[in-house]
Amino acid sequence: MTQMSPLNWLTLMFFFIMIILMINSLNYFSFYYPFNNSKYLKKLNIKPTWKW
């Protein structure tokens, strides 16, 4: 039954694309940045000094 071969490839491609998207989204959203307000407040008060 070679007529069913394109359907099989299409479902496999769809399956692997969905797995890749799921892994990428999990990696993107699971990363945690520690948020400290004191660091960001100190950075806001610093004014650059140009020496030229």
Rank of each mutant, 00 (worst) to 15 (best):
M1G: 12
M1A: 08
T2N: 15
T2W: 15
T2H: 12
T2P: 12
Q3A: 01
Q3I: 04
Q3L: 03
M4R: 12
M4C: 12
M4T: 14
M4N: 15
S5M: 14
S5G: 02
P6F: 10
L7M: 04
L7W: 05
L7I: 04
N8Q: 10
W9E: 12
W9D: 13
W9T: 12
L10Y: 02
T11F: 12
T11W: 05
M13Q: 12
M13K: 10
M13T: 07
M13F: 04
F14A: 15
F14E: 13
F14W: 03
F14G: 13
F15S: 08
F16C: 06
F16M: 08
F16W: 10
I17Y: 01
I17T: 08
I17H: 09
I17E: 00
I17D: 01
I17P: 01
M18E: 06
M18C: 09
M18G: 13
I19N: 07
I20T: 14
L21H: 00
L21N: 01
L21S: 01
M22C: 13
M22G: 14
M22Q: 04
I23K: 10
I23T: 04
N24E: 10
N24D: 04
N24S: 08
N24Q: 05
N24A: 07
S25T: 15
S25H: 05
S25R: 01
S25D: 04
S25G: 04
S25Y: 08
S25K: 08
L26T: 11
L26W: 03
L26I: 10
L26C: 04
N27K: 09
N27M: 10
N27T: 05
N27Q: 12
N27F: 09
Y28W: 13
Y28E: 11
Y28G: 01
F29Y: 13
S30Y: 06
S30D: 04
F31T: 13
F31W: 08
F31I: 13
F31P: 00
Y32N: 09
Y32H: 09
Y32I: 15
Y33N: 10
Y33V: 09
Y33L: 15
Y33S: 07
P34L: 06
P34R: 05
P34N: 09
P34E: 03
P34C: 02
F35R: 10
F35V: 04
F35K: 11
F35A: 12
F35H: 14
N36Q: 06
N36G: 03
N36D: 08
N37F: 00
N37V: 02
N37A: 05
S38P: 03
S38E: 10
K39N: 09
K39E: 13
K39Q: 11
K39I: 15
Y40C: 11
L41Q: 11
L41V: 14
K42H: 02
K42Q: 06
K43R: 04
K43N: 02
L44E: 12
L44M: 12
L44C: 03
N45E: 07
N45Y: 00
I46C: 02
I46S: 01
I46G: 00
K47L: 04
K47F: 05
P48S: 06
P48N: 08
P48R: 05
T49F: 01
T49W: 00
T49N: 07
T49Y: 01
W50H: 01
W50C: 00
W50V: 05
W50Q: 02
W50S: 00
W50A: 01
W50T: 07
W50P: 00
K51M: 15
W52H: 06
